[in-house]
Each structure stands twice: as C-alpha cells, then as structure tokens.
Simulated scan of single mutants.
Amino acid sequence: MRNLIALLVLMLSALSQASPLPTVPAAKTANASAATLLSVTWAGERTVAVGDHGVVLLSDDRGQHFRQATSVPVSTPLTGVSFVDARQGWAVGHWGAILVTRDGGENWQVQRLSSAEDRPLFAVHFFNPTQGVAVGLWSLVLTTDDGGKTWIEQKIDAPPGASRADLNLMGLFADGAGHLYATAERGQLLRSDDQGKHWRYLDTGYSGTLWTGAVLGDGSLLVGGQRGTLLHSSADGSNWQRVPLQSKSSVTAIDVSGRAVIAVGLDGLMVRSDDGGSSFHEQPSSDGVSLTAILLNGDTSPILFSRRGVVPQR
C-alpha cells in the first residue's frame, strides 16, 4: 500500500495541490531540475521532460545538462508530453490543460484549459501533426484531428462487469501500425485502432492499476504497475505472463531502444533486458530514490528522472 500511496501522490494528488489560478505562468527557478518530473520524450535530438509546478526541462546534450523552458503558461503539474518532430509537441496536465509548442519546447501556449473542474489529463500521444489523443481521470478521452485547435471528448464503453466507464487512464503508448494502448486501473489495458475514437478492453488477468506500457521490438506488449507488476503478452494482447521480480515496488515507466528494454519504479526499482524482453534482470539504484520517467540514449544508457528531479548520470 505504501507504494500505491506514493505513486498516487506523484500523479493524482494534485487534485488537492493544484493552484486555484491555473493560468499563472510557471516560475523560473534555479532549482527547476529538482522538481518532480513525470514524463519525458525526444524532440528530435532534444530531451524534453515535464513535471510539477509547470516545469519543462530541455537538454541538447542527451541528458548531461538541463535548462528550464523559456515560457510555460501554467504552474500546475504537467503529467504527459508527446512530440512529432524536433519542433512541434504537446504537454498535458491538471485542470485538463493541453499545451502546444512549435519551437522544440522553448515556449508553450494553451490549447485547452478547464477552470470549472480539475479533471486531470495524465498522458498524450500524437500520431502526426494533426491527429492526437489525451487521456485522464474517470475515463476521460479527448481526440483532435486538427493539431489541437479543437478537442472532442469521446465516450467509451464501461469495462466488463461494470455499469459505467470510470477507470483512470494513466498512460498511452503506440506501435508502428497505429494501434494505441491506454493503461488503466483494475488490470485493464485499452486498445484503439482509430486514433482514439473507439476502444476495446484487454484483460491482463491482474486486478491492480497499470501505470505504463510499451511495445517491444517483436510487437509484443509489456505493461507495468502496482506492487512490482510487470506483464508481458503477445502482440494481440492475449496470453499475459508475469515477469518475476524480487521487488514489490510499483513500476512507473518503461522505455525501449532496439533490443534494450528498461522498466523503472519506486524505491529505485530498475529492471533491464538486453534481449528484447526475453529475460530481465534487476539492477536497483543504490540511493533508492523513486524513479518516475526514463529515456534511453542511442547507446542504451538511461536518462533517469525522479520525484527529486533529474538523476545525475553515472
């Protein structure tokens, strides 16, 4: 339960911590790299990480050094980020915020903000410069076909055995064929084959929350969640098998580069495969800091992020 509470603090607690004035711009601070960071991606060769207090960090030397973005129009938590090229990207967060950048993350503008209720968005994925999907609290799914100028809320069916669709949708990942997956509560993984308009449920056989996932090189699926849960399945989302871990710390992020696969989590959890996911070995961090995001360099060395900010590279 301690791991669950810790991760809820990282990704859900801003319901109570979110600013009542969400349009206050993020402050420029000398210690921005120490903010809790929740999502990271590549913008071309640039590393872009987002997190608490509207912090956006940029690195042009593959994670060796970071600087804060020039302008971010909100100071509430940002929980997801997606880029389609070196310049154009989107970030999402609390108060249903969706931000866009067209200069590689230096400056951001608001595309969507809900001041009526704080219904956070937890993840965003863009397939191309026009088609994107954002997901969040209580089965909130938003789609756009015009680069975010307009966002449409999509109604989804209730999960099996439930009367309504109220699962929190925690993460998004896609394969090269355009299939999009959303990790969710109650061991559910949702799949869309039409850019987020319609979804079907894939039951993993697990009953806890799934926080993150990735498609491996052979097309198979890997998802991670509470209590050291790491599950591997065939490409069609059937035949789920648990990857045995000694740790019971929650898995928070997964990244894949070629045959290298790394999953990270709370209490310094780090699990690595160098054979495309056929086998894994644990190599936890020595300081036990809770890891929240990861990005693999071309040499498969990890750029790590935590609730204490950027993790210095070894």
Rank of each mutant, 00 (worst) to 15 (best):
Ala35Gln: 12
His281Asn: 14
Thr101Val: 04
Ser139Gln: 08
Ser278Tyr: 13
Ser19Glu: 15
Gly225Glu: 08
Asp145Tyr: 01
His53Trp: 06
Val133Leu: 10
Thr292Met: 02
Leu210Asp: 08
Gly171His: 07
Leu189Gly: 10
Glu282Asn: 06
Leu38Ala: 08
His179Glu: 15
Pro120Phe: 11
Ala158Lys: 08
Leu38Gly: 07
Pro129Lys: 14
Asp255Gly: 04
Ala123Leu: 04
Asn128Cys: 08
Gly132Ile: 03
Asp287Pro: 02
Ser115Asp: 15
Ala34Arg: 14
Arg307Gln: 14
Asn168Ala: 10
Met1Pro: 15
Thr204Leu: 03
Arg46Gln: 10
Asp194Asn: 08
Val310Asn: 06
Thr150Pro: 10
Gln88Pro: 01
His179Thr: 15
Val124Glu: 11
Gly288Asn: 09
Arg259Glu: 15
Met11Cys: 12
His281Arg: 15
Ser286Tyr: 09
Asp236Pro: 01
Arg227Asp: 12
Gly268Gln: 06
Leu230Glu: 12
Arg102Glu: 14
Ser75Cys: 04
Leu172Cys: 05
Gly171Asp: 11
Gly219Thr: 09
Phe126Tyr: 03
Val100Lys: 14
Trp240Ser: 07
Thr47Phe: 02
Glu185Gln: 08
Asp218Glu: 07
Val56Leu: 05
Asp157Val: 07
Ser220Ile: 01
Leu222Gln: 10
Pro22Phe: 01
Ser290Met: 05
Ser82Gly: 01
Leu269Pro: 02
Trp151Lys: 13
Ile254His: 03
Ser278Val: 15
Ser139Ala: 11
Ala86Phe: 01
Asn107Val: 12
Pro77Gly: 07
Phe126Leu: 06
Ser115Ala: 15
Val311Arg: 03
Leu10Gln: 06
Arg314Tyr: 02
Glu117Asp: 09
Thr183Asn: 09
Arg46Cys: 10
Ser75Thr: 05
Phe173Ser: 04
Gln109Met: 09
Ala30Asp: 15
Gly225Ser: 09
Arg227Pro: 01
Ser39Asn: 11
Ala184Asn: 03
Gly89Phe: 00
Thr76Gly: 13
Leu37Phe: 00
Ile303Cys: 10
Asp193Phe: 00
Arg164Trp: 07
Gly93Cys: 12
Leu58Gln: 05
Arg191Gly: 02
Gln131Tyr: 02
Ala69Trp: 00
Val81Met: 03
Arg272Ser: 11
Thr130Tyr: 02
Gly147Leu: 07
Thr209Ala: 06
Arg308Cys: 13
Leu37Ile: 05
Leu221Ala: 08
Phe127Val: 12
Arg200Thr: 13
Ala6Ile: 12
Asp287Cys: 06
Pro302Asp: 05
Val72Cys: 02
Leu291Lys: 09
Arg102Gln: 15
Ala214Asp: 08
Thr29Asn: 07
Asp194Met: 01
Trp108Thr: 05
Arg186Asp: 10
His179Asn: 15
Ala158Cys: 07
Thr130Pro: 00
His94Cys: 01
Thr292Arg: 06
Pro312Ala: 06
Ser278Leu: 15
Trp240Gln: 04
Ala97Asn: 14
